[in-house]
Simulated scan of single mutants.
Amino acid sequence: MSSAERREKEKQERRESILNSAEQSFFGKGYDRTSMDDIAKGAQLSRALLYVYFKDKAAIMRGVMLRAGYALLNEFRAAREAGGSGLQQLERMGQSYYRFSLEQPDYFDVLTNASTFAHLMESDELTEDMDICSALTMGCMVDSLAAGVADGSLSRERITDPMVTAYYLRGALHGIILQTREQGVCVAGQPDPAALFEYTIMMFNQSLRA
Score class of each variant (00 low, 15 high):
residue 2 S to G: 15
residue 4 A to E: 15
residue 5 E to S: 12
residue 6 R to F: 09
residue 10 E to D: 11
residue 14 R to P: 00
residue 15 R to K: 15
residue 16 E to N: 11
residue 17 S to M: 09
residue 17 S to I: 03
residue 17 S to V: 01
residue 18 I to Q: 00
residue 19 L to A: 00
residue 23 E to M: 01
residue 26 F to D: 06
residue 32 D to H: 13
residue 37 D to E: 11
residue 37 D to R: 09
residue 39 I to H: 00
residue 43 A to W: 02
residue 44 Q to S: 14
residue 45 L to S: 08
residue 45 L to R: 04
residue 45 L to P: 05
residue 46 S to P: 07
residue 47 R to D: 04
residue 48 A to M: 08
residue 49 L to F: 05
residue 54 F to S: 01
residue 55 K to S: 13
residue 55 K to D: 12
residue 61 M to Q: 09
residue 63 G to M: 00
residue 64 V to L: 12
residue 66 L to G: 02
residue 66 L to P: 00
residue 72 L to D: 04
residue 77 R to Q: 15
residue 81 E to H: 15
residue 81 E to S: 14
residue 83 G to T: 08
residue 89 Q to S: 13
residue 89 Q to N: 07
residue 90 L to D: 06
residue 91 E to I: 11
residue 94 G to D: 06
residue 97 Y to A: 10
residue 102 L to Y: 03
residue 102 L to R: 12
residue 104 Q to V: 03
residue 104 Q to W: 01
residue 105 P to H: 06
residue 106 D to Y: 09
residue 107 Y to G: 00
residue 108 F to C: 05
residue 114 A to N: 03
residue 115 S to Y: 07
residue 116 T to R: 13
residue 118 A to N: 09
residue 118 A to M: 09
residue 120 L to F: 06
residue 121 M to S: 09
residue 123 S to E: 15
residue 125 E to L: 15
residue 130 M to S: 14
residue 134 S to A: 14
residue 138 M to Q: 13
residue 142 V to Y: 05
residue 148 G to D: 05
residue 151 D to Y: 04
residue 152 G to T: 05
residue 155 S to C: 09
residue 156 R to F: 05
residue 158 R to G: 05
residue 165 T to P: 02
residue 166 A to E: 07
residue 169 L to V: 07
residue 171 G to R: 04
residue 173 L to N: 04
residue 181 R to V: 04
residue 181 R to I: 09
residue 187 V to S: 13
residue 189 G to L: 01
residue 193 P to V: 03
residue 199 Y to N: 12
residue 199 Y to A: 12
residue 201 I to M: 13
residue 208 L to I: 06
